[in-house]
Amino acid sequence: MSELTPSAPGSWEEIARAAATRRAAPAAAEVLRQLLCVRVEGAPYAVPVENVREIVRVRTITPIPRTARCVRGVISLRGEIIQVIDLRLRLGLPPAAIGKANRIVVVQADDGRVAGVLVDDVREVLRVSESAIGSAAGDAQGIVAALCTNGSEFVSIVEPGRLLEVGGRD
């Protein structure tokens, strides 16, 4: 906890450093966000990396009877029992068989709720500057919060909190 006391002797160096920091500040405002890019039905979707707890291969998913269709069931993650949402079904897309490329992205919303999210494929981590993220026109499910570009593609940025808002039953 060092306090800034500019009058301290031999503080020229500090003053110079402070000035340099100030000059550098506008550039630093260009905040980079890291997004985990996944694919569903060929289209790219992204989840902020700070909301991703881990990525696991598909393992036994035990279905839960009488629950929303997009909830595929539960998996055991080192003894923790976590529900798995099928992102396809959550987005209103047709179901598909689970194959080798499928992954479960364990997502933690800002309020602490956790869910596994079944995706077709995990691609890469994108670094996108905040200013390059545009707000979404609003999709039917209200899951996509914003858009950004990756090369020629538009990437839909998913809002984890809304993704995890699933009604009890269909």
């Binding site: 393992r59 036994t60 035990t62 839960i64 009877p65 009488r66 629950t67 929303a68 909830v71 539960v74 998996i75 055991s76 003894g79 923790e80 029992i81 976590i82 529900q83 798995v84 949402i85 709720r113 956790v114 869910a115 596994g116 995890l164 808002e165 699933v166 009604g167 009890g168």
Partner: peptide, 25 residues
């Protein structure tokens, strides 16, 4: 173990258990 996830009111189930080998019941 409690079932974590978006659906909170899972009527009829008090939780789940791992019988070993990542196989929840």
């Amino acid at each position: 173990k409690p079932i974590q996830g978006p659906v909170q009111n899972l009527r009829g189930f008090s939780g789940a258990t791992d019988l070993g080998d990542q196989d929840p019941v």
